[in-house]
């Protein structure tokens, strides 16, 4: 099936989180089926690959699946947040709104042809009074995004650990602080 690669004009953090929760639930159900007995209909096709694994090996298999899912979820949350911030930027510039953030964005838009998330958009948000903690939390998580988006081939210096719910809290805290236009 060919996917439709169209612009997402309303990036949705909740949709990303729903996706992650659903995948996690399916993975947990698959793990429970595999380790605690099959359904009467016999093993599902996806369980064939577990044939002959010891319970410990199967547990390691599911832990690796969950880790991969967690990493993808964190990347999804961070890229969706960037999309939300950039769509908000575009809307405020195009709609010529009068609030301080919209004015700041228009001024930035005139001055620069290529906008950077960190130096431009986050700086503008900071200047309009968003809590420094919300900005710095997201900036820290951008190092995680960079590492994930480039294939994790180096040891990252993230300064802290992250789980999907940490990243969700960080991006939600930032987005909740954005002033209404």
């Amino acid at each position: 099936m060919t996917l439709a690669f169209a612009a997402v004009n309303s990036p949705d953090l909740n949709a990303s989180w729903d996706w992650f929760e659903f995948q996690s639930e399916m993975l947990a159900a698959a793990r429970s089926r595999a380790l605690h007995g099959h359904a009467p209909a016999g093993p599902a096709p996806f369980e064939q690959r577990l044939l002959g694994l010891t319970p410990e090996e199967a547990a390691r298999f599911f832990e690796a699946q969950k880790r991969h899912l967690d990493l993808l979820c964190m990347l999804d949350l961070l890229t969706t947040t960037e999309a939300i911030l950039r769509v908000d930027f575009r809307d405020r510039v195009e709609q010529r709104k009068k609030d301080p953030l919209s004015r700041k964005y228009r001024e930035l838009n005139k001055r620069k042809s290529r906008l950077h998330l960190d130096e431009d958009i986050l700086e503008a948000l900071k200047d309009t009074g968003i809590r420094a903690q919300a900005i710095s939390g997201f900036r820290g998580a951008l190092r995680l995004r960079h590492w994930l988006a480039h294939g994790r081939y180096w040891h990252p210096k993230l300064g802290r650990g992250y789980a999907p719910n940490d990243v969700f809290d960080i991006v939600r805290a930032l987005l909740d602080e954005i002033p209404a236009s």
Partner: peptide, 12 residues
């Protein structure tokens, strides 16, 4: 012999 308690089979 790896064991008898394995997934989907009665030994490995």
């Amino acid at each position: 012999p790896k064991g008898l308690n394995v997934i989907g089979a009665s030994g490995r």
